[in-house]
């Protein structure tokens, strides 16, 4: 029987798993020890519903509801001096929970402190754009849409940014294989010639060093030279590939013999 492979996560899997091994977790500390983080948490708690908050590896992590993302970032920007949003993107948890996790990585330049806002949305749920607060989201949200297919409401130009406009699928989803899907494999052929030409052209060969020995237009064969453009694929009998042959000449008799000494 063929081994079962889950379809909702086709990424690389550990080759060996110990069924009794439990992965440890990075320690989560309380935010009370740091006065700045405590103040941020207090301000945040007044404005929005804080689901969870802790300090992980020197950065404050706050979980909020997806509807509150604008309100939460407003608190950070206006009341806590978080002037910069360094990064925003998503993590695919569709296989486990049917959700995406979206993170906003915030930076307070005056105190050199970083806070991460985490929120979870369902697969078909959209999130509000934060471009009015941080213009960097213009590109970052487009990338998130491109890579995960997460719709961002009120974004001025929500189009694919890295993949071509007519690409099918969202590459960073766990259901998208590393090698690409069928659309990816036939992308150029479909686009330039049309689907009906798939059989004529054949699948793309990505081996740059591939040599077709019967192609007399682009390759020559030392020792078996044929005229340019000659079609010999049908007529030639199968023979071992020999890249050069050496003729031994017997000067006493004048005969030529193929060197088979190797």
């Amino acid at each position: 029987m063929r081994k079962y492979t889950p379809k909702d996560n086709v990424q690389g899997k550990a080759k060996y798993t110990d069924r009794f091994w439990v992965a440890p977790r990075v320690p989560r500390e309380s935010f009370d020890e740091d006065s700045h983080f405590a103040a941020v948490h207090k301000a945040m708690n007044e404005a929005v519903d804080v689901l969870d908050a802790y300090v992980e590896l020197d950065q404050l992590v706050i979980h909020i509801r997806p509807e509150d993302n604008i309100a939460a970032l407003k608190v950070l920007k206006n009341r806590c001096d978080y002037a910069m949003c360094s990064e925003l993107s998503a993590i695919d948890y569709l296989a486990q929970d049917g959700e995406f996790e979206i993170f906003y990585q915030m930076l307070n330049l005056k105190k050199a402190k970083r806070t991460r806002i985490l929120t979870r949305i369902k697969e078909n749920q959209a999130i509000e754009s934060i471009v009015p607060l941080y213009a960097m989201a213009n590109f970052a949200e487009r990338e998130m849409y491109d890579m995960f297919g997460i719709y961002v409401n009120n974004h001025s130009y929500l189009k694919r940014i890295i993949m071509p406009d007519d690409w099918v699928g969202h590459p960073l989803r766990k259901t998208y294989p590393l090698q690409g899907d069928e659309h990816a494999a036939w992308y150029e052929v479909d686009k330039i010639f049309g689907k009906e030409h798939r059989d004529v052209i054949g699948p793309e060969n990505r081996d740059p060093g591939r040599i077709d020995r019967y192609d007399s237009q682009r390759f020559s064969r030392v020792g078996y030279e044929v005229p340019f453009g000659a079609q010999e694929a049908e007529s030639e009998t199968e023979q071992p590939i020999e890249y050069s042959k050496q003729i031994l000449v017997d000067y006493t008799t004048g005969s030529e013999v193929l060197d088979t000494r190797k």
């Binding site: 440890p24 990075v26 992980e56 990064e87 990585q105 970083r114």
Partner: peptide, 10 residues
């Protein structure tokens, strides 16, 4: 196998 968790190191 690093422990479960998230890191952002600038």
């Amino acid at each position: 196998r690093p422990p479960k968790g998230t890191v952002y190191a600038p």
